[in-house]
Nucleic acid binder design. Structure first.
Lengths: 351, 351
DNA sequence: CTGAAAGCGCTAACAA
DNA sequence: TTGTTAGCGCTTTCAG
């Protein structure tokens, strides 16, 4: 009668051990399916655990095992946010894999200016067993910090650094394909809207654009290289800032570095009275769900967004379990809705 | 020389205590800003903590305090998913408030058929300090289970049950406003696309529709009540299934119970060669971000989605801290993009 | 194959 | 004001 210590909830391992007539140690082993316990014993313990509805206490277990069973997930900072549709689908994949393995997801609040502070907090407070990051930059201060911390981490998106693990869609090849598809429709003047400056993906996609032009026998013309930032607003403004080139009939196709910018671009075109795809073709990249909400649905290079999430999580778990070392994985992409927002080039004489 | 126990990472509280020349208890108190420690002592300890870069070990602390500092977040099950844009924005709000208070977010994998299993696991494994749920149903088995578990919980969306806490947008009033706006444009035949059956929100929104009709002096006509399920596909199919009413010119306006269905409806209309808003007006409800990606942007009743998330999290934290009891909070809504996808009623003689 | 005992790092009575 | 002493519930040597 020392007072009921547990208000409610299931039985504790010590209690279960007593009921079984074994020690905590044996119960712990049985539950962990340790080969050292006699099969009959194991069976008995498992049965009793079931009968008394025993539930392991994750926190205590984690404390004893010096782990957290939690993964930190970092989203990009402004101008892109967690509200970017791409990241929702990605999150879906990440969370699914993680939860299957019993991991929780910690989405920390980002320190506005200093991403590194967020990372330091995660590792210093030993809040997580591993970290998933996005959007590596050409020069990325996070990487040095993470390496030093010894916490396993993976990037969504390829890094410049060779000894960092990452998973990525085929940015360069995908954009190249997109440009080729436009070329196949007769387009000779294909503009590109670039992504946010400083990101590896922006760079890769631009290279893909150049590859595409080269394969079509076209020259790179800097007049057709429009800056952007991966946001819808950025795509909108890129078009607004180059309306003359469009209205003069010089540019007949636009390759946007992502869907959100393609959507913004289409809005700007519509507002300017330019019809898509009759007058100008627009191709996106990513294949986010919302592209399908448009009328007509956006023609785009589909990334396996959901699978990217699953892969990234899987790689991190492998790293944590020390099943493998550095991994670089590139997933294939493919064009979807091929005949919607792109169409044959219609020369409208600049003459 | 007993072997370095900590491979890396910061100093432990015991070590810090030794360096300070105080006991662990005092250090613990000082760090918790307990008024019982002498100011000078506190200052010294804080200084040393800073100097040696001491970081509390959250897991150990949680174990000792019998808490988890983790909140379980449940998303609706099929046909809606975590990939519903509404929930991403909502998640954004929830996570922000939670992280400000040092809570983590656990998004468990949903057991396909039995939501109750998921809940049982969350509470039985003592994985969370509280739970946030969505989409209460008219008859909701989750509620009894949660009440019995004693784990604090809050719903996004009002419940039938009076002694359950919830936060909600003004569904009924919002839809009513929407209908009135359509009425003000001369529409007399306003169809409604209902939400998923069995949900409280579906019911409330339908009531709002009826309120709106009543205020316009219109009769409820069951021919104008089209079933739906809150998905884009559902909205699309609702329109396809009633094209005759639209093409005959009988129906001139559609009030969708959410944006996703409004988007689907517009797609179906466009495909049928019916222009929006020239021939048919469409109004949504929610105000999700993607509505703004459409050309023209969707006219809709804007819910404060992000704030709903913040509020819901805030209420739950209050419940956990026992700062208050049951809370019901209704947030106001308002029409946005008023003149985009709705327009004056154009009678197109059914005669 | 099983058990005893010593923690994981921190908190919280209870004393002093 | 501070220290002592027990744990929180589980894992893991180390013996047997």
């Amino acid at each position: 009668m020392k007072g009921s210590r547990r208000i409610r909830g299931s039985i504790t391992m010590a209690e279960l051990a007593k009921k079984c007539g074994f020690s905590k140690a044996t119960v712990s082993r049985a539950l962990a399916d340790d080969p050292r316990v006699k099969p009959e014993t194991k069976e008995l313990i498992l049965e009793m655990a079931e009968r008394y509805n025993y539930r392991p206490h994750a926190v205590a277990s984690n404390l004893a095992r010096r782990r957290t069973k939690t993964i930190g997930l970092l989203f990009p900072s402004a101008p892109r946010t967690i509200a970017d549709p791409f990241f929702l689908e990605y999150l879906h994949g990440v969370s699914e894999t993680l939860f299957e393995q019993g991991f929780s997801l910690l989405i920390p609040q980002l320190h506005q200016e200093r991403v590194t502070d967020t990372i330091e907090e995660l590792v210093a407070h030993r809040r997580v067993d591993g970290i998933i990051l996005t959007e590596p930059r050409l020069v990325d201060e996070r990487i040095a910090l993470l390496k030093e911390s010894k916490v396993p981490f993976v990037f969504l998106g390829s890094t410049v650094d060779e000894d960092v693990s990452w998973v990525d869609g085929d940015n360069r090849g995908g954009i190249c394909q997109g440009v080729q598809a436009l070329g196949a429709l007769g387009h000779k003047r294909i503009a590109v809207i670039l992504g946010e400056e400083g990101l590896v993906s922006t760079e890769k996609r631009f290279l893909g654009y150049q590859d595409g032009l080269a394969s079509l026998g076209l020259e790179l013309d800097w007049e057709l290289v429009w800056p952007g930032d991966f946001t819808r607003k950025g795509g909108y403004e890129a078009v607004v800032g180059h309306l003359d080139q469009i209205q003069s009939g010089d540019v007949t196709a636009i390759m946007a570095s992502n869907d959100l910018m393609a959507i913004g671009a289409i809005q700007a075109l519509n507002q300017a009275g330019v019809s898509v795809p009759q007058q100008v073709s627009v191709m996106g990249f990513d294949g986010i769900e919302v592209g399908k909400y448009l009328s007509p649905p956006l023609t785009t290079v589909q990334q396996p967004v959901y699978n990217l999430g699953k892969e990234v999580a899987g790689v991190l778990l492998g790293l944590i379990a020390e099943e493998h070392g550095v991994v670089h994985r590139t997933l294939p992409v493919s064009i979807v809705n091929e005949t919607n927002t792109i169409g044959p080039a219609v020369p409208r004489g600049a003459a």
